[in-house]
Design a protein around this nucleic acid. Structure first.
Length: 587
RNA sequence: CGGGGCGUAGCUCAGCUUGGUAGAGCGCUCGGUUUGGGACCGAGAGGUCGCAGGUUCGAAUCCUGUCGCCCCGACCA
């Protein structure tokens, strides 16, 4: 049976909804695919559900081809497993927590590592049960700080999450590769361009992780790539540090008055004007050492200050810092932090003062001091002298000051060398559409998932976790496939195969349309049939363009001669065709 | 969490500056005329103007508070 528009649950909007700015959001609401329920939470209407189903079907086929079995977990889960792995706390404000009537803690799962691990623990005890890959397509919940852009970043979203279980590291490599290959096939089938980048494992934990990013200027992730093939999320980028050098022959450090130089730029200007370099080169921001005070809040609530020293031409990249200090929350130090540490002279902070070291766990302040990897032994810096209006010049790392270690906190700039020596990197934006992790034994250890190996010894299982954002993918496809009139779905994910429009009011047209619909269904096409009697052709054409089914058949004034029109939504081309040929043509 | 914008009919919005008791277009219902690019005529239904308090004879409009939504930002002391 065809779906008849005369009684389909669909209402298209003539105007853009006022709360939607992003194209995909605007068109999906206008064309009647989704409705907003709350910020970042959407209801799915019949059309939207169909597209979602098409995407899920592609994912299922490829998961099955990769040997993974489908299961389904509840979204509502007890606290205990997440307590055991520490994620009840680590997930912070992003976790939806709730209580039942007895006061027991529950959560809406943001991802399901714990319960998959426990399920396998329940059912598997031998290496013969492995390798095992299981997955589900299920709604996830994350209380995002700022949901935005419709489906692109929601608080409830559909995700395919797969988990692999092996008893050897080599086995994990194989399982990981199988999922990775499946992802490549899925994104290729869906027509989504992607870049595979090295990623940070973040709250998930584990060792190796790669992200599938869809390159787009509106993406939320910044990644780098080199001509030589290196690609990484900036969060995972590792700075190529220069070799340390000796400091024999370097002049000793000297303190100068540098009034009114609260910023790096004013400092550089002052340095060039008052203390030009002997070699004639100009001072630049890269010659200065900027010391940024951050406050870390650990999950248990303890607050600690840390100072980061980095070249003055670079900003601190907050996302990179958060990765470096995870699971602690990172923010700029506030007034009370400074009040508690009078040893820090704001605007003129540096690791050294005439009275001795100021920064570092062994210094007068005792504040942990971490530096950018470029701050290696023998490098010379202009930096604050811990006196108001004074800076120290020629301060040499290793000779005049020490750090408590290095940290990847500085922003990555275009032209920075890739860590694998494959050349300078360029920066680009992307949207995460898939993520594969080698979790290793973190979850299995925490939850006690062990099996007997070939030698009868208990071994801890090693795991992988693999996610695809189904609803996000849907939004990206919509984002990529539209024009000023509406959506234009790729054939593989369109809600229907063919949209048949009957125009006019001649009964012959409707009778003919019924025949066309039947013929199309007989060759296996899903048909959306616009059989509305009192709706003018312009409205029907407009709705067809908005809804975006790629192939449209118009039955109208040519019906009397056995002719219909084939309308290609994407190209806009219309072609006369004998009604008797339609089924074969679109079959 | 900070900044900006916005809450008036199902949707998109006007009205607010200058207070006087609710508007338009689209959509919806009924009747009629229309039917290849968002038709027309006539008759209707539909709103505690986000919420609370205040000022006032009188508040959608002015004041205070509050809630919600959208967008941008989140660091360089």
């Amino acid at each position: 049976m065809p779906t008849r528009l005369s009684n389909y649950f669909l209402r298209t909007l003539r105007e853009d909804p006022s709360d939607a700015e992003v194209t995909s959001h605007r068109l999906l609401v206008r064309a009647g695919y989704i409705r907003r329920q709350a910020p970042g939470i959407f209801a799915w209407l019949p059309l939207g559900l169909r597209v979602k189903g098409k995407i899920e079907a592609v994912v299922r086929e490829e998961m099955s081809a990769a040997g993974a079995h489908e299961v389904h977990f509840p979204a509502l889960l007890p606290r205990e497993p997440y307590e055991v792995t520490g994620r009840w706390e680590e997930y912070g404000d992003s976790l939806f927590r709730l209580k039942d009537r007895k006061g027991s803690d529950l959560l809406l799962a943001p991802t399901h590592e714990e319960v998959f691990t426990l399920l396998v623990k329940d059912l598997c005890n031998s290496y013969k049960d492995l390798p095992l890959s299981i997955y589900q397509i299920q709604d996830k919940y994350r209380d995002e700080a700022r949901p935005r852009a419709g489906l692109l970043r929601g608080r409830e979203f559909t995700m395919k999450d797969a988990y692999s279980f092996d008893h050897t590291d080599a086995g994990l490599d194989v399982s990981y590769q199988a999922q990775r290959d499946a992802y490549e096939r899925i994104f290729t089938r869906l027509g989504l361009e992607y870049v595979i980048v090295q990623a940070d494992a973040g709250a998930m934990g584990g060792s190796k992780s790669e992200e599938f990013l869809h390159p787009t200027p509106v993406g939320e992730d910044t990644f780098v790539r080199s001509a030589g093939g290196y690609a990484a999320n900036v969060e995972a980028f590792r700075t190529l540090a220069p070799a340390a050098q000796g400091w024999d022959g370097l002049p000793s450090a000297e303190v100068f008055d540098t009034p009114d130089t609260p910023t790096i730029q004013t400092l550089v200007n002052r340095a060039n004007a008052a203390h030009p370099r002997p070699d004639g080169r100009e001072w630049t921001a890269a010659d200065t050492l900027k010391n940024v005070v951050l406050a870390l809040t650990q999950p248990d609530g303890t607050r600690e200050l840390v100072v980061i020293g980095l070249p003055g031409n670079r900003e601190v990249d907050l996302k990179r810092v958060e990765v470096a200090f995870t699971p602690a929350e990172v923010e700029a130090a506030n007034e009370s932090d400074f009040a508690a540490h009078p040893g820090l002279v704001r605007g003129y902070i540096g690791p050294w003062a005439s009275a001795g070291a100021v920064l570092g766990e062994a210094s007068s302040t005792g504040i942990r001091y971490l530096v950018d990897p470029r701050v290696v032994g023998g490098t010379e810096w202009i930096t604050g002298a811990n006196e108001h209006g004074r800076h120290v010049f020629g301060l040499v790392a290793g000779r005049d000051f020490e750090s408590d270690g290095t940290v990847e906190a500085a922003e990555v700039l275009a032209g920075d060398p890739a860590p694998d020596g494959s050349g300078p990197v360029e920066l680009a934006r992307g949207m995460e559409i898939g993520h594969v992790f080698q979790l290793g034994r973190k979850y299995a250890e925490a939850l006690g998932l062990k099996v007997l190996d070939e030698n009868g010894k208990l071994v801890t299982v090693t795991m992988g976790s693999y996610g695809i954002g189904v609803t996000r993918i849907l939004a990206i496809i919509a984002e990529l496939n539209n024009d000023e009139k509406g959506l234009i779905w790729p054939a593989g994910v369109a809600p229907f195969d063919v949209h048949v429009i009957a125009t006019g009011r001649d009964p012959l047209v409707f009778e003919t349309s019924e025949l066309v619909v039947k013929a199309l269904e007989s060759v296996g096409r899903d048909v959306l049939y616009d059989d509305r009697a009192k709706v003018s052709p312009g409205v029907k054409f407009g709705d067809a363009e908005l809804i975006g089914i790629p192939r449209i058949v118009i039955v109208g004034r040519g019906a009397v001669d056995g002719i219909a029109e084939l309308w290609d939504r994407r190209t806009g081309e219309r072609e006369q065709i004998a009604i008797t040929d339609i089924a074969e043509r679109l079959g």
